[in-house]
């Protein structure tokens, strides 16, 4: 819309600012809470300006978490963030690798039950993780993959959405390109590697951003299969910090950990934003 009415500009900005405030305020509160001592924090009213304990809270969160005192082992946010990172990267990378190959097979090869395979993948779109979580747990447990990175990553790797997306990307690639490659003597794998992959670069980047955040935010699955504190992901650890029974939860450490947990997804979005937008809107092949 290219309307030029001053009051409309003001109104739209007011709405935007209200929206931003609603989204940003909880994050601000989290930040404020992570900079006070527990003593200041639990007083009423709660402080609304940052306090002076920021450095010490964050150092404790990174190095030791809650420490022995609260019953959990002394595993700092550093280790847990590393676990989360491995899981998020594994899931994002694995999903992309599997789905791009699956899409390649569906689009470029004529084999028996091709469409059956495609529709089976498509139908799994309709089954959320929660539905198949019990059988999946059983399988992973039987394979001895509880409390391992493999157990965290592999069950979440298959992705119908990503397969579907790459299928659309490949279908937009002109057939003549595949034919030209055939005449040039490039076999299917060569064509995939030299032509399709570079052409889907931006789509891969966009998908990576989405999947990294998806992987980072995984909650239910890691909650189920990790019991070893060394293998807990950061999202789970925040929850554990707060379930302390009758004791006073150490809010300032939990909040500092929360701030740290938010950081990697934000960084991924910030640094890949250009590719991300390009990958979602680009149509020319």
């Amino acid at each position: 819309m290219v309307e030029n009415r001053p009051w409309l500009t003001v109104a739209t900005h007011v709405v935007l600012v209200i929206g931003v405030l609603i989204v940003a305020f909880p994050i601000y509160v989290t930040f404020v809470a992570s900079t006070h001592s527990l003593f200041d924090l639990v007083r009423i009213p709660m402080p609304v300006l940052p306090g002076s304990h920021m450095v010490e809270n964050y150092l404790q969160a990174i190095s030791a978490g809650l420490g022995e005192a609260s019953g959990t082992a002394a595993v700092g946010a550093g280790r847990m963030m590393f676990n989360s990172l491995v899981m998020a990267l594994g899931i994002a990378g694995g999903k992309i690798a599997i789905s791009i190959i699956a899409a390649f097979a569906i689009v470029y090869f004529r084999f028996r039950f091709r469409m059956v395979a495609f529709w089976m993948i498509f139908i799994t779109l309709m089954l959320p993780v929660e539905v198949r979580i019990l059988p999946t747990y059983k399988v992973v447990a039987d394979l001895g993959m509880l409390d391992t990175y493999g157990g965290l990553i592999i069950p979440l790797i298959a992705s119908a959405t990503a397969t579907f997306m790459f299928r659309q990307v490949f279908m937009a690639v002109p057939d003549e390109l595949a034919e030209a490659a055939r005449i040039d003597g490039a076999g299917p794998l060569r064509f995939f590697w030299d032509v399709l992959l570079p052409l889907s670069r931006t789509n891969i980047a966009a998908l990576f951003v989405i999947l990294f955040i998806y992987g980072w935010n995984q909650y239910l699955w890691p909650l189920l299969i990790t019991t070893d504190p060394e293998m807990v992901t950061i999202v789970i650890s925040i929850n554990r910090m707060l379930s302390v029974g009758d004791d006073q939860a150490e809010w300032q450490i939990a909040m500092a950990t929360t701030m740290l947990a938010m950081l990697p997804p934000v960084l991924v979005v910030v640094f890949m934003q250009r590719l991300f937008v390009k990958g979602l809107v680009e149509t020319e092949k």
Binding site: E176, E179, A180, I183, V195, R201
Partner: peptide, 13 residues
């Protein structure tokens, strides 16, 4: 043989 296509089919990247 070598073939020239209607839409050229050049590798865009």
């Amino acid at each position: 043989i070598a073939m020239v296509f209607q839409n050229y089919a050049l590798y865009p990247h």
